[in-house]
Design a protein around this nucleic acid. Sequence first.
DNA 1: GCCGTTTTCGGCCCGACTGTTTTCAGTCG
Length: 610
Amino acid sequence: MPWGRACRRSAAEATSGKAEPLDNVEIARALAEVADVLEIQGGDLYRIRAYRNAVRTIEIQTRPLARMVAEGAPLTVLPAIGKEMAGHIRELVTTGTLAFRDSLLAEVPRTLVEVMRLPGVGPKKARKLWDELHVGSIDELEAAARDGRVAALAGFGEKTQAKILSGIEEDRQRTGRFLLAEAERFVEPLVGYLSECPQLERLEVAGSYRRRCETVGDIDLLATARDAAPVMARLLAYPQIDQVLMAGDTRSTITLGNGLQVDLRVVPPDCYGAALLYFTGSKEHNVKLRRRAVERGLRISEYGAFRLADGAGGGGEDGGVWIAGREEADVYATVGLAWIPPELREDHGEIEAAAAGSLPRLIEVGDMRGDLQMHSTWSDGRNTLEEMVAGCAAHGYEYMAITDHSKALAMVNGLDARRLKLQWLEIDAIRARHPEIHLLRAMEIDILADGTLDLEDEMLAGLDLVMVSIHSRFELPAEQQTARVLRALEHPQVNILAHPTGRKINRRKPIALDVEAVLARAAELGVAVEINASPARLDLKDTHAMLARELGCRIVISTDAHRIAELGTMRYGVDQARRAGLEPRHVLNTLSYPEFLHAIARPAAAARRR
DNA sequence: GCCGTTTTCGGCCCGACTGTTTTCAGTCG
């Protein structure tokens, strides 16, 4: 097959003079390297951040900066690009290199940055490892740690050495998958860019992205077009391409600057539905679907559904007669199934449910009537309480809870009883000014190491909503951690257990917790559990949320927004709820305000049993 | 280093806690 050839732009080509000018990916990478080395050198934090902000801007530009430079367009109109950055960009475009970056890299190797990212190692320790052991990469660090050279360094010790080794181990096991939200940040501009191609008819992102998995490995784009060539040409001209791995007539594979691999296939309209089904997966879902087809004398592939001649086996030279494939629903219909929402396609019982006509009416963002976790400038939020209220009102919510941190989180200016009372005064005033939304007095209260709460009981009684969560002592053994959480749930004032496992996807493992025991007890006590919609948390995760539903838990979805813009992350929580098969009736904050207040209250019987 | 102000510079998260080490980097939200 004429899949084309892989090609890679090398730095040598870029600097050879006859090559094309640097593209956005290379420009962003050069500035990121500056930020990395400045960090190791202990440079000014705000200066480092300025470079990182510039990188973020460049990463999502769909216009080539080189063209802007060539046309003399002002670069400083772009956010986070000032005089200095504009100068760097012009230098990179016109000379292919950046003297400032090169001078920084003369002092430390760029692989030292990976060393700095290990847990327990920061800029200072990375620098010391380089200066004293000449360790400049993860591999070199592993070797040094194995012969005990790391522990012998001043400022290091046996435990640090062991932590480094386990950190390297974890780093190696990391999946290389991207957070869904992070992938989205790169995919949405690409989809918008491709959509401007006049020959393009339909375009959809398939794969785990479409199933709304919490992380995605790569991106599968599926398109139909009368003529595939202009669509492929437009993809290959995308300014954010890092490498072209494959460039064929109907299929191309590229990587973007952040390493995300993107596959584009152009298929004929007659098999678009079948191909979308095939490339959306999951594999397990497809396998079961194909088996169901075989039972009915059919064959389903990415090209369509085919009726096999009597006695014909699957996969033979006679592929059967094409009977469907234009739309996904047509293909499902051939095996007697209703169309199944992508989020459910994990072979978790959705095919049986579709066959029985009992697919859930999945929850949607539009069902949400309130947001129940967010922070303001009273603790670590970036917007004032009133700004958050206005933000929630703009989202059309009927109610909201402001949940600043409690005093145990001193570093985020957590509230003690005195400041909480002051906040209540402000809440009273804001309630008067914002009759359009019900503002609940709430708090995200730390569960202390022994399972007690970080707020006095008499203050708890003054809250409309008590949310509890863990922000410390993540490493407790399972038995102790579970007992800690269970003790907190038993407190009769507690309404919601927030981000129950405390995980940060790709960054922090969940706490050792008997999730089933906690969910079961929460269900008995009438304590709701949260699906935290923050893209890096998504906690409860999909399977835990499914378990919560099965156990009869009350469930809420909230954003944990620390600024107005993050109120929009509700959709990621809803995505996970959909993957768990949740309907609006399973989620308390789809209820009207009076119904919600009634539903969130702890049943008296449960409180008495304490 | 950028931004926004109301044009020449201050704000931009940061500061208590932990573990390891013996003075401080890393962590947490």
